[in-house]
Computed example of a mutant assay.
Amino acid sequence: MKKLFRNLLFFSAIGSVAILASCGGDEEEPLPAAPSMEVEVEGVEVTGAAISAVEGETVTFTVTVTAPGVFNTLNVTPSVDGVAGTSTPYPRTASNVTLSEEGTVAVIGLTYTFDADDVDKDLSWTFEGVDDSNQTTEKTFTATVEAAPVEVVVYTETLIGGQSNATLGSFYDAEENKVYKYAETRDTHSASVDFLFFYGDTNKYAIAAMDDADANTAFSSALNVTNALSAIMPTKNATKFKVTALTAAQFDAIGDVDALASAYGEVAADASKVNNLEAGKVFAFVQASARGSKKGLVKVVKTDGTSGTNRSITVTVKIEPSED
């Protein structure tokens, strides 16, 4: 009986050891801490996680994923107007991934250039960092894109002669920045002339449209031709003008059509000429409808000459571009 009791105690002890050993073998290794992410943005205006950009600008994302469980992949998913696109994975072996020696910190550089198709769209990018345990971290950036400013067309220091100047032309095409003499204007180019230059005792240095009465008088007298403009020119574009309070420096600063429109102002140009011009003065004009009704600004660079044969004016012209 004592022997049997000792045997039962022995087997009972073995069973307890087996149960304890079995329980210990089922325990799982604890997961490492989940990854975290930081995103730096350069090249555009950033407010929080929102980007404001202009067409043509390039944004640079520098994504840093810290993964105690070892970095595996960065997934980037773009979205346009709420519709998600195809996700692009950047594994730790990707060329744009810089990985720490332990593999726990990954730095990924990404760039994107905004184009015309992005303007006025709701854009976003979702960055998802994944570690080797399939744990994730995520950040989303949204973007709004404005159209790039449309640059004005600029013609610098164009020289135009007066009505009696036999050397220089007097008739100006603001589209092509070309100056024509009277005969070639009359015979071939009147339809493309936006304004002319003449000098008079009252008007002094003046820029005018082809339909201006004082300009007609000046050229008729100089050329000894009756109604040299009003009766003889095939086309007389009714360009309109107005004076401005712009300084030369303010004129020089204008680079795009929005700035030009703002400087032109809300009051319509309605005069057939601007007179008493001198260096530094700035005036506005609008083409005739047949020429596209584009607005422009002119800065007087220089006035020159002491007689009808050598009178001239030098101008810089800024005008809206033609629509394609």
Rank of each mutant, 00 (worst) to 15 (best):
V154K: 14
A284C: 11
A206P: 04
F195E: 00
E27A: 07
N310K: 11
A174V: 08
F71E: 02
T314C: 12
A206L: 06
L74N: 02
I19L: 14
L8I: 11
G255C: 02
S221N: 09
S52T: 09
E157F: 09
T142N: 10
K302R: 15
R92V: 13
G200M: 11
D81T: 02
N227H: 12
F241Y: 03
V153L: 06
E138R: 05
D214T: 05
A143L: 07
V301K: 12
N177W: 09
E157W: 12
M1D: 13
N203T: 15
D187S: 10
T62S: 13
V179H: 06
S272N: 12
T58R: 13
V119G: 03
N177C: 04
E320W: 01
T185G: 04
I19W: 11
A49P: 01
L99E: 09
S164D: 15
P30R: 09
R311S: 00
F195S: 01
L229A: 00
S230I: 00
A208L: 01
T66C: 04
A191K: 12
S22M: 12
A268C: 05
T158I: 12
F251A: 01
I313H: 05
G305H: 14
V301E: 15
A259C: 03
N310F: 14
N72G: 05
K121Q: 15
T185R: 04
N7H: 03
P234I: 03
N224A: 07
V150D: 10
F285P: 01
K178S: 13
K294F: 08
V70L: 14
V267F: 10
L223M: 07
V41N: 02
G103W: 11
W125Y: 15
V179D: 13
I254A: 01
V153G: 01
T158L: 14
T185Q: 06
A213N: 07
T247H: 09
P35A: 00
T98G: 04
T185E: 05
P30V: 04
S272D: 13
V243P: 01
V274K: 01
L196R: 00
S190A: 10
D212Q: 10
D270G: 04
V130S: 02
S220P: 07
G103C: 13
N275E: 15
T136R: 07
E151S: 10
N75Y: 03
S262V: 09
T88G: 03
S322D: 13
E101F: 14
F71N: 00
E40A: 11
V286M: 07
P321L: 06
Y180R: 01
R291C: 06
D194P: 04
N310C: 12
E138V: 07
P89C: 09
A116Y: 10
V76P: 00
L196E: 03
T185K: 05
A253C: 03
Y90E: 10
F127Y: 05
V76D: 07
N224S: 08
V41P: 00
Q287S: 09
V70D: 09
V179C: 07
S307G: 15
R6L: 04
D252R: 02
E176K: 15
V63H: 00
G69S: 12
I160P: 01
D201Y: 15
E45M: 14
G25Y: 14
S221C: 00
I19N: 10
K299Q: 14
V301H: 11
A218T: 04
Y205V: 02
V97D: 12
Y199L: 06
G305M: 12
N275L: 07
A238V: 05
Q135R: 04
L20T: 08
V300D: 07
N7A: 09
I14Y: 03
